[in-house]
């Protein structure tokens, strides 16, 4: 088996790596790039724990072969905080107590982030739809939903005061 070269923009930095092709993107991120916020849950695309933002869309990385990451842009939870400051969504998850065991949290935050990158004033229904691919087996959905909603409200206020954009 020949190794393949994968070049991608990972959390804002251009990276190139040589790997065996028989691994998935979740393995590539966790094991080769040591980005362990990417969680493996069900391994069948059902739970959303391995969600990252891939070329602007939330995707489940357990359904993708490493080679599919070539020439892509990927954002993991590690890429959200800027200059030691948490992303607004991360802060809202903390403030709302939206984290129980924490396993689903990175995927939840990234599913919400993918939505907010495309639509900065989503409706309730749009938030629910965007988060519908992520399961929380502690069943803490209400607080998770409240955290995303509060991020949307705070963000709108910030924008009204001439703040910077969501990314």
């Amino acid at each position: 088996m020949n190794k393949i070269s994968i070049s991608l923009n990972l959390n804002g930095t251009d990276r190139t790596i040589l790997v065996y092709p028989n691994r998935r993107v979740v393995d590539l991120l966790r094991e080769d790039f040591k980005l362990t916020s990417v969680k493996e849950g069900c391994s069948e695309g059902e739970c959303g724990a391995c969600t990252v933002i891939f070329n602007g869309d939330a995707v489940t990385t357990c359904c993708m072969l490493a080679g599919q990451a070539d020439q892509s842009t990927i954002i993991t939870l590690e890429g959200l905080a800027k200059d030691g400051e948490l992303d607004l969504l991360q802060q809202c998850f903390l403030d709302e107590g939206a984290v129980q065991c924490g396993y689903c949290t990175p995927g939840m935050i990234l599913a919400a982030k993918a939505l907010l990158l495309k639509n900065q004033s989503p409706t309730e229904a749009q938030i629910k739809l965007a988060m519908s691919g992520n399961l929380c087996r502690c069943t803490g959905y209400q607080k998770i939903h409240a955290a995303v909603k509060s991020a949307v409200v705070i963000y709108k206020d910030k924008m009204a005061q001439g703040g910077e954009s969501i990314d």
Binding site: A58, T60, C63, A111
Partner: peptide, 9 residues
Amino acid sequence: VGSPQIRSL
């Protein structure tokens, strides 16, 4: 189909 993640892939 599936979920937002699955529909994007």
